[in-house]
């Protein structure tokens, strides 16, 4: 099974993933990356932060950059709604 490394770049800097994971293919790696991003965002929101400026970089077994997933592409945000005056 191919090996992938997941590097997290966000407001706190770079967290590089030394070990990586074995996953069946790139599509699975992409799905796992998105799950991971959502989980991080979910935890940060509990503390009042919604930081969409980060990105997750997936590198292949040789260390080459294969996929870049910006945080803001991992979720959709429906914005402000203005009500008529009550």
């Amino acid at each position: 099974m191919p090996h992938f490394f997941f590097d997290l770049h966000n407001g706190l800097g770079l967290v590089s993933n030394e070990e990586g994971r074995e996953l069946p293919d790139l599509e699975t790696a992409r799905r796992e990356a998105i799950k991971g991003i959502r989980s991080i965002i979910s935890a940060e929101v509990e503390k009042g932060e919604l930081d969409l400026t980060g990105r997750l970089v997936v590198r292949d077994g040789d260390g080459a950059e294969t996929l870049v997933i910006p945080f803001h592409e991992s979720l959709t945000i429906v914005g402000r709604w203005t009500a008529p005056a009550a």
Binding site: R38, S42, I77
Partner: peptide, 23 residues
């Protein structure tokens, strides 16, 4: 109120769909 909002946004983030238009 703040905890409520954050709880909902947090859970919705796990699903990838956040609605900031809630009030």
């Amino acid at each position: 109120t703040l905890r409520e909002a954050r709880s909902i946004i947090s859970s919705d983030s796990l699903e990838g769909k956040v609605k900031l238009s809630y009030r």
